[in-house]
């Protein structure tokens, strides 16, 4: 096992399943034999506000917070939330963003514009960039709530952890009636990365 700790910053909007996704990732990497820590904020911040989860795994992890500038993978469930945390990445960091937009209130009120061309802004700064159609695929499969599982499928491609461990852990968190749908969602997420 490498001595280095891997830092993943998950970001999204309250209700998108960011925290469930980071819970699943913690269990997967603990199952794979790593020390894990994660940290997020509950309460007021969740009412449609910004949600982030710092997830770290390695041989021995101290801080539950990732130091600014040391994020290895920015894993964003929404475009604007990807942009918001861009400065937390390492120069050679990896960016995975769900190709989905949720307007913040100030944009709904017509007082600010939703930034255009977020994928271009990211791509011009980080070569290792993946735009994943998480929400779109989940809708096609039949349940928008499976978007986080599509995204987990996508990120799972970057680690040497058994696919079966990912799937087992995901399904453990979900009721049996949605297992088949989420298996499809996971596979479709992996497919997104294989193709790009």
């Amino acid at each position: 096992m490498e001595d280095l700790t891997t830092n993943i910053l998950l970001a999204g909007v309250g209700g998108q399943g960011v925290i469930l996704a980071s819970d699943i990732m913690s269990e997967v990497f603990m199952g794979a034999g790593y020390d894990v820590k994660k940290s997020e904020v509950h309460g007021m911040a969740m009412r449609g506000g910004i949600v982030t989860s710092h997830f770290r795994f390695g041989k021995k992890v101290y801080s539950p917070l990732i130091k600014e500038g040391e994020v290895d993978i920015l894993f964003a469930f929404e475009q604007l939330e990807g942009l918001r945390w861009l400065n937390h990445l390492r120069p050679q960091g990896k960016v995975i963003i769900n190709d989905h937009k949720i307007n913040p209130p100030i944009v709904n009120l017509g007082e600010m514009e939703y930034p255009r061309d977020i994928p271009e802004i990211v791509r011009s700064r980080f070569k290792d960039f993946y735009l994943v159609k998480g929400t779109e695929i989940a809708l096609q499969i039949g349940d928008v709530r499976a978007a986080n599982v599509v995204l987990l499928g996508a990120i799972s491609k970057f680690f040497e952890v058994a696919e079966s461990l990912w799937l087992e852990t995901i399904l453990k968190h979900l009721p049996p009636k949605v297992h088949e749908l989420n298996q499809k969602a996971f596979a479709a997420g992996r497919e997104q990365i294989s193709r790009s």
Partner: peptide
């Protein structure tokens, strides 16, 4: 750490 992006990002406060 040097910022790579300095443009404005709309805030997203919690909401009813």
């Amino acid at each position: 750490p040097q910022p790579v992006f300095t443009g404005s990002v709309p805030p997203r406060p919690p909401n009813l």
